[in-house]
Design a protein around this nucleic acid. Structure first.
Lengths: 185, 185
DNA sequence: TTGATGAGTGATTGATCACTCACTCTTGGA
DNA sequence: TCCAAGAGTGAGTGATCAATCACTCATCAA
């Protein structure tokens, strides 16, 4: 068992490529990102990407799953760190953690891109799966009412819109209405 | 002035092509839709599209503007028809009208697609412009508080997510949390 | 009648990209 | 030492598509 330069197996490399795909798809979207982009980011050849994933769509779904893994982890540690452990206190802490998390836009962007290609069945299924995980986790961890959890999700979506549209750069009244009380990411 | 077969001028044809672009971009997104698709829908040649619009991006922006025209019109007539003319009564009526409007998915889809390509400056600007129109209209027409209008927008975004992800087909508890009280489009 | 202007198109081009295939290199067990 | 199995790649290929260009045809003012 030579400790120094063990070749990474395909099994070990797959999640690395998925992470690279997350970054690249977040930047360019599904159609705007090439397999070559992902391969370059992952430091492998384009051809090898197809040995690790059956096609571009499966690669996108893997990236989306990696995104929701990170989201759940951030919500979890945010909830743990909440000073007020009441349901709404926990949901507020989760919202803060989420706003912090999407500061780099990667996790936000790929969700928006996924929304725009849900006509690909695997992507739609992957998005629903992620939503199920987030919603269920928020409900169970906070023990809040259904209405509280729904509001948490709705304002999360508003936050997505504010960031993707760049509303934060605006100073008019309409922008103030949308952004008021939203932690600026 | 021959009344029978006056040739449509470029000026008159542009909005027709924009409407065709709205339908096509809504179906395939920016990268997934070709100029040939739009041309076919508008019954003109691909080459002529480039005589009417300087490029694909300008065509998308025109389609997005047409989308917000329709949205404002629907909100307006929804508000007029509200039985309860209090601020929240008007906002509720607008929400109903909006849910009704996006039943055909075209107006919803192009907004989601626009969100995914806001890195194109003209698209980002067009989206902010549309948001400004919708938010300002909701505020002025309803005379509701800023918080009421913000909630109206947030739940609108949740509605977008529910429809694009196909949450309505799900019956699990997490789906019930998200969709409860949302008028099914 | 003429000629200028604008409507509208067919054919093409240059670039891009998902995906394939035949191939080489590396590793570790017998 | 040898070899089987898997890691990893270079060089394509066929298809697609935005954008261009040289054209034809219709209209109408003078």
């Amino acid at each position: 068992m030579p400790a120094s330069t063990t070749l990474s197996t395909a099994e070990l490399r797959r999640p690395i490529v998925a992470a690279a795909a997350l970054s690249e798809f977040a930047r360019g979207g599904f159609h705007g990102t090439t397999i070559a982009d992902v391969a370059r980011e992952a430091r492998i050849s384009p051809a090898y990407v197809f040995k690790l994933f059956p096609g571009k769509e499966a690669l996108f779904v893997a990236a989306l799953e990696a995104c929701f893994d990170e989201v759940i982890a951030a919500l979890s540690s945010g909830a743990d760190a909440a000073s007020d452990q009441s349901p709404t206190g926990i949901l507020d802490a989760m919202a803060d953690a989420y706003a912090e998390l999407i500061g780099d836009r990667r996790l936000l962007s790929i969700q928006v891109h996924a929304q725009s290609i849900t006509h690909i069945p695997e992507v739609g299924a992957g998005l629903r799966e992620g939503l199920a995980r987030v919603t269920s986790f928020a409900k169970e961890r906070s023990n809040g009412s259904n209405a509280d959890v729904q509001r948490f999700m709705a304002y999360g979506q508003l936050c997505h819109l504010i960031v993707t549209a760049g509303v934060e750069g605006e100073t008019q009244p309409w922008a103030e209405i949308l952004t008021h009380g939203i932690r600026h990411p």
